[in-house]
Design a protein around this nucleic acid. Structure first.
Lengths: 341, 341
DNA sequence: CCGTGACTTTCTATCGATGTAAATCTACAG
DNA sequence: CTGTAGATTTACATCGATAGAAAGTCACGG
């Protein structure tokens, strides 16, 4: 830490003096400029080690106009799905030499809009955005002048890149899985009534498609509304469902958290899972493996989503001008105890 | 977005030209310098709005020598305890106008050491560090020349600030809670044999103290080792415990994840909780409320830890030279179904 | 011995904002 | 009408690194 500068900081200039070369040569060494005499490189590297020089990123960023930081805006980290998504995104970014600034938008629609124009955008080279509340009406707000990759299917077809899974097909597969186990009275929890483009609506479409394909009539008494997709919602919705007295032999939780909440209520009521009621979720969060019984679910390919999103964003930051892309990742049905035959 | 600069960016200089004042005056307005004529302020603000000016943080940071970013190093976000901790830290930081860069150190001891000297440190004004593997031998590595706040009790008394809960007392309280329910054969899962300063060791001390205080002999057959505190470890340890045939009427999981894993194994084996075996965890992660049965646990006061850590770090960044502090936060026993009378 | 082209290294301006100190402007007492 | 303290505003250097182009070096053919 033996700095030569006025304060404790060692700058490139200090290194240059120590090595007896110009500042630019030090910069060239640090940036792997190809035409440097090995002996010069050695001198510089020695000086760097000796002085303990570290790059001042603010200076580099100022000069280059980039920060090497990308933003990740998501509802909240305490929701396991998003925590795991953040984990994957950070790993993917790290592998590519950039860092991630996480912003939580838990406050609702306005908070989600704010994140798009926040001062923080000035600090990041681009944004990966996973909205929960925005709808088609907010499309205009997403027309921003910085690289943006949107996750999820809330808003289609705008002028931005999109990475998502096929919610409709995946939900159909989940429902089909229940039907294959002989279930016919399949309830859904977490529906959002007025919505047309969100995950809830899309997954409902898949549910309905599966019923139709199997000649099972749709019974609206089996569809339970539920705003926030938290465990408590799942627990409450299931209680309401059971209290309504309607016949049920399976529950499709539109996400794992709600399905886990459902398991909790079923357990409390002494209802056997999957004996009396089978349960399937959606997301494949880590918890689902460890619930009692373990939860069948849909794996959305989180790693793939994260890597794709990061790659896409980085290519935009690098100046890629191709037309906006929509990438659809793979899903798979994970059968566990809660739907065992 | 109507930039005046060469590229699309609007700088303070553009604003100054538009408003007919000097750059410095614009800077003064933006920074709330008190002696500005209201009319001047109005002109500048109007120009800012008109041009859509946004501060270039890299430039400010270069000049000020600070980045306004703090680092948060933790094992991994997919562990619920850390995801929730990160949530709290981000909120606390946001309330104070700074942003958080999360770094995952899941790779083990070396990865934890690396984070302390990483290039990223140059990008942050300080670090909140929650190590999982470092031990007393690594004390030297924690003597860094930037503001550092360490969470947890792995390493005591060094030259850095520390925020932690009282693991010993809290574990004693958890054990006492089981004893109060009439349990005498209390197993512990997640012990770390050779360790002396980590959470595992401290919680074991509390456990032993409670047994001693109640005249219950310590039976080493009831102590199950377990490296990583994941659910799987809890599930496996519990299976091993049951297979060993030793008499057990309660299990103390040294964290919630393991306790939840224990519940899973107990459920699989058809053992009634708490009828045959009571279970208590440690951490009070959100899941614990929703397991079946819901899990009794120790709440470590996560919000308080986060806020304290952020405040402490910020005061160090601001130049606070007081002696290093150790802050101990409050805990509480949360009694739920898994230990019901 | 000199010119030429391929390497290497250095010079100089700049990225955008802020600290310092000096320059201007009031407003009001003398 | 002048001086002066206090309020406002400005000029200028500077934070640390990088782009671009000029300037040196060097080996080699003519």
């Amino acid at each position: 830490m033996a700095g030569t500068g006025t304060n404790g900081t060692v700058t490139m200039n200090d290194v240059a003096l120590e090595a007896g070369v110009s500042i630019k040569t030090v910069s060239n060494v640090v940036n792997d400029y190809p035409h440097i005499r090995p002996s010069t490189r050695a001198k510089v590297e020695e000086a760097i080690d000796k002085l303990g020089y570290r790059m001042n990123f603010s200076a580099r960023h100022l000069r280059q106009g980039r920060t090497g930081i990308i933003g990740l805006a998501l509802p909240e980290l305490s929701l396991p799905y998003f925590a795991e998504l953040a984990d994957s995104v950070i790993r993917a970014a790290e592998a590519r030499g950039i860092v991630v600034l996480i912003e939580q938008t838990s406050g609702g629609r306005q908070h989600e809009l704010d994140v798009l124009t926040s001062d923080r955008r000035q600090l990041t080279d681009g944004l990966i955005f996973s909205p929960l509340e925005l709808g088609p009406d907010d499309a205009q707000a997403l027309k921003v002048d910085y690289p943006l990759v949107v996750l999820g299917e809330r808003i289609f077809g705008g002028d931005w890149d999109h990475v998502t899974m096929n919610n409709v097909d995946a939900a159909r597969a989940a429902t089909q899985h229940l039907i294959d186990q002989g279930r016919r009275r399949i309830a859904v929890i977490g529906a959002h009534h007025g919505e047309s483009m969100g995950s809830a609506a899309l997954r409902m479409l898949g549910y309905q498609a599966a019923l139709a394909a199997n000649g099972i009539p749709l019974d609206t008494d089996l569809i339970i509304e539920g705003g926030l997709w938290h465990r408590q919602t799942g627990a409450d919705s299931t209680a309401a469902l059971l209290d309504s007295g309607v016949e049920v032999d399976a529950i499709f939780g539109l996400n794992d958290a709600m399905a886990l909440g459902a398991l909790r209520t079923l357990h409390a009521r002494g209802i056997d899972v999957p004996g009396q009621i089978a349960v399937i979720g959606f997301d494949d969060i880590e918890d689902s493996q460890y619930s009692a019984p373990s939860l069948s679910t849909i794996s959305p390919g989180r790693e793939q989503i994260a890597e794709t999103a990061v790659d896409l964003l980085l290519s935009r930051i690098a100046g890629d001008d191709e037309p906006f892309r929509r990438v659809i990742t793979d899903y798979s049905v994970i059968a566990r105890e809660s739907t065992e035959a």
